[in-house]
Every structure is written in structure tokens, then in C-alpha cells.
Design a protein around this nucleic acid. Structure first.
Lengths: 145, 145
DNA sequence: ATACGTGCAAAGAGTTTGCATGACA
DNA sequence: TGTCATGCAAACTCTTTGCACGTAT
């Protein structure tokens, strides 16, 4: 078990919260995978070690970890959500060909909320910024059928 | 019928494309409503004048108008999409309380794609920027049950 | 007259819910 | 031992698909 999960376990060691095999496995997978997995991907992967694990349990735990602030749900279109372990704030570039996601930081954007606050009548509390493009792998391929 | 719809009709006057009552009504509603309606809202509203209109027709036409580049689909989470008639590029502020959407412009963001291009390995083709906050109406209300 | 568009019902994907059983603290 | 979590099946929401009928051009 990795140190990130161990730290989170001690955070979660409270009355009313239990650590189960399944929850541990999901946490471990999310902390070690760097691929922004979907619920389905997590389910299929964990199924190899825990053949009885159910889709419901994956969803339950993703919602639980989200409520606890340990993970972030990444929502793209009507298709399925992706999830990532929460580390420091960053943004995502999404490949429009293969769906691959990369992280990047852009500290300049922090100032933009103030500018936007002046533009709008809303009391701004947050923002979403995503880039779309073609990843290196998809860009190398010839564009013919 | 308003002038925006009239202009679009002449653009669509091509072999293989037909103008129907339903399509016209959807176009008219999208050009006059400034509320970023959902497919369901469009359906319910048009149902008053065209009692036989179906949900399928609304979706069909929204997809058609989207392919023609006349409207923009706004996707928020797993919940239903919203649609707006395409005018000039702008961004959205979404109220986290009531879901209300306002438009605003922020030309500074255009330069950010270049900065992001340097940060990432992707060939950047576009971006998404959304703000979240509390609208004036929701902000006025006392925060008690 | 010729298809394009419509409208009904059914399918589909992703996620949540109800509930009896299992297992962590 | 109490009750939180699991896992199965069913429900749910939003959207798309199949197909016969209607209707714009």
C-alpha cells in the first residue's frame, strides 16, 4: 500500500467510516494510476483481483471519496465521468481524437476570476478551464483511411 | 418570423434540406429565447402550439442545427444539455444554486491558448472556460431553511 | 412523386436506488 | 454486535435508433 493511501486512511479513521477491501483497492488504484480512469475502467481492473466486486461498489466509493474531498470528478460531455486523485490544482488538455487527458498548470488563470468578477453580476466561486487538441501520438498518424 | 431565422432559412435552402413547421418553430424559439433552454424545455414550450410535436423531433433538429453550425450545445455534467443560437464567441457563468446561465466576454483568454500550447505537448485546437458562482437573485436570499 | 422529416415505441449508456446479505470496528 | 458497505437487480434520466407514415419540394 502506498503512502498517499496510508495518509488518507488515517484521515478517514473516524466513527461511521469503515475501510473495506474494495474501498482500499479503489483508493490504491486511483493514487497509482495516472490515466484519469472511468468508473468502468476501475471496475474492470479491480475485477481481476476482486472477482466479486460490483459496479455499484465502485460508484458508491467514488461518490464517497468525492464527498470526502479526496478525488475529483472530471465530467466530459454526456459520456462517462473520469476520476483523479486530488493533488494540487491543475488543468486538463483532452485529445479530441483518442480522449487521452494530460495535466498542465497555468497559474496566470488565477487572476482571471477577478477580471470575470467585474464582467459579471455573479459572486464568482470557481472556474473550469479545459483545452482541446491532438496529442502527440494521434498527431503523428497519417490522416488517411 | 424574425430576421435571424429568415437569414438562416435562406442559408438552408439547399437540395436535401426541407423546412418544416417543427424545424421553424425550434429555430424561432432558439433565436428569441435568451435562457439557454434544454431539449425538454423546448419540447414543452413548443407543445403548446404544436401539440403533436415529439421529443425525437426536437432532438433531431437540435442535432441538425448543430451540424449546420447554427447552434451551440452547452454540456454541463451528466444532466441534460442546453442550447443557444450561435452569435459571437463568449463564455458562460453558471449559478451553482439555480443553474441560471449568463453570458460574458473575456477577450484576454484568446492569448491563453498560445501559452497553453507551450505548456503542453498537444496541438491545441480550442478551449472551454466556464465560471461558477451565485447569481444576484440567489445571493439576495437569506441562507436559512 | 420522391425522399426527407416526423412521431411513436423501444433501445441504449451511464448512474443511482432498494433491499437483503456480508463484514468491519 | 451493531451498522456500514456490498452486490444484485431494477429503476432512472437523457438521448439515440428503427421504422412506418406524413409532407415539403
Amino acid at each position: 500500500m502506498n503512502v498517499v493511501v496510508e495518509e488518507s486512511i488515517s484521515l478517514l479513521r473516524r466513527p461511521g467510516i469503515r475501510m473495506t477491501q474494495q474501498r482500499l483497492a479503489i483508493m490504491e488504484y486511483l493514487t497509482t494510476s495516472n490515466s484519469h480512469p472511468t468508473a468502468e475502467e476501475i471496475y474492470r481492473e479491480l475485477n481481476k483481483k476482486l472477482p466479486n466486486i460490483s459496479n455499484t461498489t465502485v460508484y458508491n466509493n467514488l461518490n464517497f471519496l468525492k464527498e470526502q474531498g479526496l478525488i475529483q470528478e472530471l465530467i466530459f460531455g454526456q459520456s462517462c465521468s473520469r476520476y483523479e486523485w486530488r493533488t494540487r490544482p491543475h488543468y486538463h488538455v483532452i485529445c479530441t481524437e483518442c480522449g487521452k487527458i494530460d495535466d498542465f498548470e497555468l497559474p496566470e488563470l488565477n487572476r482571471l476570476e477577478e477580471a470575470a468578477q467585474r464582467e459579471s453580476n455573479f459572486q464568482i466561486s470557481g472556474h473550469l478551464f479545459e483545452l482541446y487538441g491532438i496529442c502527440t501520438e494521434c498527431g503523428q498518424e497519417p490522416l488517411q483511411s
